[in-house]
């Protein structure tokens, strides 16, 4: 067993009723690695992320975080999930940031950050507050400690949410389209914080539509479509020189806002398939072969 592997997911399936959203996902995340998950809307990327801390319960497959098994398939094919306490113990070390912030609206920014460290880790109020002030300072919101979530902008709320997750000293951070519900001009302040976290060596699994961020910060990119990882590789390779026709079509749709071909449509011609515009976001992409 390689102890450098923090997250190990294999054979992950998830169905909601009759619709199968994940159809057999395998991937690993190494300690200190930043992995971006991209893909069209409805491809299953958010569901996949939510399986990693069991906010969604897989219908099949095995998930291991930090050498602890969250769920696995028994020989008879049924699923075995860890006990509630074990799942909580794992979640303690897995921070999550949501698309819609999910801050506690009846608590101030500071109270949002100290609640879990006090309740779950048993920190004293003064220790928790000292740490929370540090964290709020680090996301540029030291002066907003006593503000309530609804008094903050979307960008500020999301940065409080990041501070709240970091307060648990997580080994892994999950980001679920964290810039999708803020105004575009506020996304930058969130991405800035995430970029700094990545530089500090945080292990991050990032579902995103921010191709610029993925290109700049991610070590690896997974492209998901229809519940399967269609393409996987370095950010440079996947974003600038995608091998798969679906990946190319998706990137063209995102970068040029061109409509994306539906499944069953003939695959877009590879001509000029490395979508124009990519070279602006992927450094050194001028050596991309056609």
């Amino acid at each position: 067993m390689n102890s450098d592997v923090l997250v190990r997911v294999s054979g992950l399936h998830k169905s909601f009723g009759d619709s199968e959203v994940l159809k057999g996902i395998d991937f690993e995340v190494n300690r200190g690695e930043v992995v971006a998950i991209i893909g069209p809307s409805g491809s299953g990327k958010t569901t996949m992320l939510r399986c990693v801390n069991l906010l969604e319960r897989p219908t099949a497959g095995r998930i291991e975080v930090d050498s602890r098994v969250l769920c696995e398939e028994l020989p008879d094919g049924s699923m075995s999930f860890s006990k509630k306490a074990e799942i909580r113990a794992i979640r303690e070390h897995v921070g999550m940031v949501f698309q819609r912030f999910n801050l506690f609206p009846h608590f101030t920014a500071l109270e949002n950050v100290i609640e879990a460290p006090m309740a779950v880790k048993g920190l004293s109020r003064s220790d928790a507050e000292a740490r929370a002030h540090e964290l709020l300072e680090s996301v540029g919101l030291g002066h907003k400690a006593d503000s309530y979530p609804l008094q903050l902008s979307g960008g500020q709320q999301q940065r409080v949410a990041i501070a709240r997750a970091l307060a648990m000293d997580p080994a892994l951070m999950l980001f679920d389209e964290v810039t999708s519900s803020v105004d575009p001009e506020l996304a930058g302040e969130i991405l800035q914080v995430m970029k700094r976290l990545a530089q500090e060596g945080m292990t991050m699994l990032v579902v995103t539509h921010e191709m610029g961020f993925a290109a700049e910060v991610a070590d690896r990119v997974l492209f998901i479509d229809h519940g399967l990882i269609v393409e996987e590789g370095s950010a440079k390779q996947v974003l600038a020189n995608p091998k798969n026709a679906r990946t190319r079509a998706f990137l063209r749709a995102v970068l040029e806002r061109a409509p994306m071909a539906e499944e069953g449509d003939p695959a877009p011609e590879p001509a000029g398939s490395s979508a124009p515009g990519l070279s602006q976001i992927v450094e050194g992409s001028d050596d991309v072969e056609q």
Partner: peptide
């Protein structure tokens, strides 16, 4: 109360009774 509140509490490792008492019921 928005389901996201329960999810955020779960993700932070809180017990359900704690999140009911501190997060869900007050809202």
């Amino acid at each position: 109360v928005d389901l996201g509140q329960t999810e955020a509490s779960d993700a932070l490792g809180m017990t359900r009774s704690h999140s009911m008492k501190r997060i869900i019921l007050p809202q």
